[in-house]
Computed example of a mutant assay.
Amino acid sequence: MSGGVDSSVAAHLLLEQGHDVVGVFMRHGEKSPAACDLEPASAKTLLPIIGQGGAGRLDHKQGCCTASDAEDARRVADRLAIPFYAIDLQAEFGRIIDYFADEYARGRTPNPCVQCNNWIKFGKLFDYADAVGAQYVATGHYARLRAGEDGAELLRGVDAGKDQSYVLFGIDRGLLPRMLLPVGGFEKPAIRRMAAAVGLNVATKKDSQEICFVTSGRYDALVKHRRPEGAEAGELVSTSGEVLGRHAGVAGFTVGQRKGLGVALGERQFVVRIEPQSNRVVLGSRDELMRSELTAARCNWLVDTPIGEPLKGLAQIRYNAPPAGAVVTRLEGDRLQAVFDQPQFGVAPGQAVVCYGGDRVLGGGWIE
């Protein structure tokens, strides 16, 4: 339970389905007494709260794990009369922040939400579920599960504008039978109406839009603080090698970026490539950003896919990118190749490519 409307309604739907529900809030930001002291006199909290004590800033930005979010989640648990447990995963979440900083310092574009799902939401929370004898882990993600001939299948959510199946591709296939995604069969307006109908205080709460651990709103400042090598000044160059200007560090750029380049060239330019070894950021035209194919490493498959056998389907190269027709081939060494029907804009190393067969998630990997 993140304190948002989706996970809150997920808990309500699970109760309606007859499940014995325990609400869990993951604390992994800066310590805050408002986030730690979550047990009011009226709360029906049957499990202890870890991570009590510790003072810190209370002015967290809007995110998914702030002090105010913790309070919202606790109020929802009270309203639904379910036990509520705030689990402190700050130490474990340091791995996510290190990954984020490392990737930007290497000139790559990370996706911390995917890794959070892989390592924490459907990693550490399963450890907790096992510890308390829970059968399932449920979240408010907009995706669906169904039983298939070869086991549980992960599908896109019904609401195409909110679909989150992309960020779930890396989950261990063996965990799918123990996952529940109650809101995936609904569109967002229906979820908000449901929350209002049962009197949940989060019915009109805005969706989180920011990276939860970047409290300042400046991700490049976080990267530069943790990985100073990403803050070394270098050259902005054209694809032909002409020096166009200087930059303050590769951590401030991502492939496909158009704004905030620090130079005015009279025509639209994009970040085409980042070269951390030479500390250069390469700029070019939109056409120079187009790619007809890609390879990806550290792949995870949710279906049985023979090595070397081409598979016609769809490939999605960013969370907010439309899926594109492609022929995908699983390669040796946990890698894949995707050859697109039409060239794609802004294929960024470090992002995930997720492969679909219709609405079903087949698998994916990390773009090289």
Rank of each mutant, 00 (worst) to 15 (best):
V353L: 01
S278I: 08
D287K: 11
V255I: 03
E103D: 12
A134W: 03
A297P: 09
P110I: 09
E92Y: 06
E232T: 14
K162Q: 15
G29F: 00
I307T: 14
G3W: 06
T329Q: 07
L181I: 06
Y85H: 13
V114W: 01
L283N: 07
I49L: 08
R227I: 02
D207N: 10
L294I: 06
A91F: 03
P48I: 07
C212G: 05
D102M: 12
K162H: 14
E332W: 04
L168N: 11
Q277P: 01
Q164F: 15
A231S: 02
G170S: 12
A248I: 14
P83M: 02
S7A: 09
R335N: 00
V202Y: 05
I97L: 03
V214C: 15
P322H: 11
A321C: 10
R227T: 09
P33S: 07
G18E: 01
D172K: 05
P33L: 14
Q90G: 11
C64G: 14
Q316E: 07
K224Q: 12
A35K: 04
G256V: 13
A197H: 08
T295L: 02
R144Y: 03
F186W: 13
F270N: 03
C355M: 05
L15E: 09
E332P: 08
T204Y: 11
L14M: 15
D150Q: 13
D88R: 02
D59S: 00
P322E: 04
G185K: 12
G252K: 13
V5F: 10
D130I: 01
D72S: 15
D102Y: 04
E332F: 03
L168I: 15
V353K: 01
V22W: 09
K121S: 08
G94C: 03
G54K: 01
G123R: 01
L38T: 05
S216A: 06
G63R: 10
F345I: 04
A251W: 05
A41Q: 12
D59I: 00
L314G: 07
A43K: 05
G262A: 08
W366S: 02
L89P: 00
A70Y: 04
A338L: 07
S68W: 15
W119H: 02
G51P: 09
R146M: 11
V198D: 03
E267L: 09
Q17I: 03
T45F: 15
Q342H: 13
A324R: 14
R360L: 02
L154S: 03
L145A: 06
G56M: 02
T254H: 09
P40D: 14
S216E: 11
F93R: 03
Q277S: 14
P40M: 13
A131F: 06
V250R: 00
R318M: 13
H60Q: 10
G161M: 08
D359C: 08
D69N: 07
F345A: 13
F126C: 08
E103H: 12
G157N: 07
M290T: 14
A197M: 11
